[in-house]
Design a protein around this nucleic acid. Sequence first.
RNA 1: GCGCCCGUAGCUCAGUUGGAUAGAGCGUCUGCCUUCUAAGCAGAGGGUCGCCAGUUCGAGUCUGGCCGGGCGCGCCA
Length: 660
Amino acid sequence: MYLTLQNRLREALARHIQEHYAVTLDIVLDRPPKIEMGEAASPVCFELAKRLKKAPRVLAQEIANGLGKIDGIARVEVAGAGYLNAYFDRAAFWASVSSPGTRYSPLPSQKISGKVIVEHTSINPNKAAHIGHVRNAVLGDTMARVLRHAGHAVQVQNYIDNTGVQVADVVIGFLDMERLSPVSVKMAAMEPRFDYYCWDLYAKATHFFEEDKARAAELRGRTLKAIEEDRGEEVEVAQVVADAIVSLHLKTMARLGIAYDLLARESEILHLKFWDAAFEKLKSAGVIQLASTGKMAGCWIMPWKEETTSAEAASNDEENIQDKIIVRSNGTVTYVGKDIAYQLWKFGLLGKDFNYRKWPTPPEGETVWATTTSQNDPAAPRFGEPATIVFNVIDTRQSYLQDVVAEGLRRLGHAQAAENSIHLSYEIVALTPRCAAEMGYELTPEEARKPYVEVSGRKGFGVKADDLLDKLEAATLAEVHERHADMGDSFQKRTAHSIAVGALRFFLLKFTRNAIIAFDFKDALSFEGETGPYCQYAVVRIRGIRRKGVEGGATNVAVTQETVATLFSGPDGNGLWELLLSAGSLDLAVNAAIGAQEPAFVAKYAFQLAQTFNNFYHKHHILNEPDEQKRAFLLRMTELVEARLVETLSLLGIEAPEKM
RNA sequence: GCGCCCGUAGCUCAGUUGGAUAGAGCGUCUGCCUUCUAAGCAGAGGGUCGCCAGUUCGAGUCUGGCCGGGCGCGCCA
């Protein structure tokens, strides 16, 4: 609602200034420092004053006087040195927030026509998911929810690198270190904690490789080649491991309310000749070249840093060559090459499509599709339909590689697709030294002094997602049990689960993307202050009021327009108005979140609304309010807040329980 | 060496395209449960926005330089 009024004001000011001063200006709008000063303010007269060489306050007064009536805005006044402050029509705002039909309507300029792809999670399927993977998934899932809320057709894809080095390492662990047969691996893969087993095995394999580099190179080379060529025990085990772990990842993410439309697998990129098609395009367009000399001889490379002059290039020693290898001298393709093929497909620029089948072991109640080389299921959604915009949720350390992928598209002549390939980058989740020590990690004195310690999947060092969720659920269950002993067991569990998810998702979303999160159990297990449970608690309070009201046989009287007008202009008017305004500002938060690709804005908004409500809650004792009209008004207000807060939390993937 | 990111309260972080008196949570201290759930509320204390210049009517925000920290620059991903 707020956004609608803001847009009306912006348009009215722009038109007025254009008509009366023949100046076209972008109208900057922000919030006045205090609610008494209105709800939207523009410093546009300062800019206009400069252009016209007139005093800003004089111009502001002229505009305030001349600006006609704007629907939903009561008046526009001059303030300070020349601000234009707009005061919303509170009763009208109440009416529109109350009407059930109000929906988010994006600005026309922001409407993305066509399909949006959000690729996230994309964990190497060779070990259990850890907290860093959860940040990726939660960011991507939240972004997808927010985009859907804004009316976009979103497809969520999870890229499965089932033919890469990481899977190969675990395959070597099973075949060459543990000397298991494929059948035994198949049996092991049916165990519920197979991902944990692989977590340890992967760490052991990494250690094993470090002992003897030559042996490592030989084993890896042989295993990777077998997997790529789709033959032997290696490929059999690789498939078993990758498939089992993907299913476990899906299960872990389902605990957090995260689901996927499509699992796009690297094995299909290879076997359906996606790479071959991309390779031909890159070669014929001259985007990549076969290096004949130097240390990259025999590789297909994409030249980088073209702007350096030949003199500079000549003086540069080989160490500084930035050219990116796309195909190795042994003929195998790098990750970047495969990613270019995949990215081309996303935009419908490859001229090929996958076959699709249902994933055989999805989480309960879900349908997940996956790519396949075998028979296509005609019931599959049209995943091959070109996207107009693609969000790739990948940590910031891979920025350079993402730039290479986008540059590849650009040099193939797809400037628009390159522009719309958005790297939704985020910083890593590290552990505080204290947390690392708690987990039995021996810190060097240097590490102990740093604010955080980086996790490492290779070393098997990190907080596993399921362990963290278990810990959170145990903590919330103990609390729920204590507070609501009368509650049934399964209800207690459900409640504890939603609080645990609320705590974790909010914890990961309250930081902006480029903040490094130093993880600590103490912070993540906190349920007070700026947390998910705080926001959930506000909803629970509202539901408590409603239950009590129904029990007490509260009369359901309609709130008259007079009551609304009187209360908003009365002594508590500004306080009440602040809450309503906050409840009507979700569209602003969503708009900002999409504009900046920053889900944290929605989390900040949820907290701010919950906080404003808690303030209201303490100020007004609703059910004891003797005045029937005022009571009805306050009750209606809580309903409005509940609806908007529940909606906001659902965008964050957080459920509000009935009691907590 | 080159590139990207960061530096705001004791700690952890917000601060949309430059706008009015720089905010929140945690922690500390003081109050508030016979009244709709205290996972809460009110209040106090806490700041040379790393430093120096510049642009501007106006800079935490933009530009340049410096200081400090992180990451990337692999025939790994």
